[in-house]
């Protein structure tokens, strides 16, 4: 297969794939999922910090 044919094959492959639209809802779902995960991590960090502070506070009292 000549590289021109290979290029034509890739162009056709891209053309077919390009006709598949990525819906806005799918992109938004990914963004929301990431935001929820970030929120969970921040909450975990906050609770861990509070726990460490209380532990340290109790030990010093």
């Amino acid at each position: 297969m000549h590289s021109d044919n290979l290029k034509a094959g890739w162009t056709e492959h891209k053309r077919q794939a390009g006709s598949d639209h990525i819906p806005e809802a799918e992109i938004l779902a990914v963004i929301r999922q990431e935001a929820a995960q970030q929120h969970r991590i921040r909450r975990l960090l906050y609770h861990s910090s509070c726990f460490m502070f209380l532990l340290f506070f109790c030990q010093t009292c």
Binding site: W10, H13, K14, R15, A17, G18, D20, H21, I22, E24, I27, L28, I31
Partner: peptide, 23 residues
């Protein structure tokens, strides 16, 4: 940022889909 990201992804869906499909 969200809107800009969505626009970019939709405009370049061909790149994303063609690579995903190849694998």
């Amino acid at each position: 940022l969200e809107k800009e990201f969505i626009t970019i992804v939709q405009q370049h869906s061909g790149i994303i889909n063609s690579i995903c499909r190849a694998y």
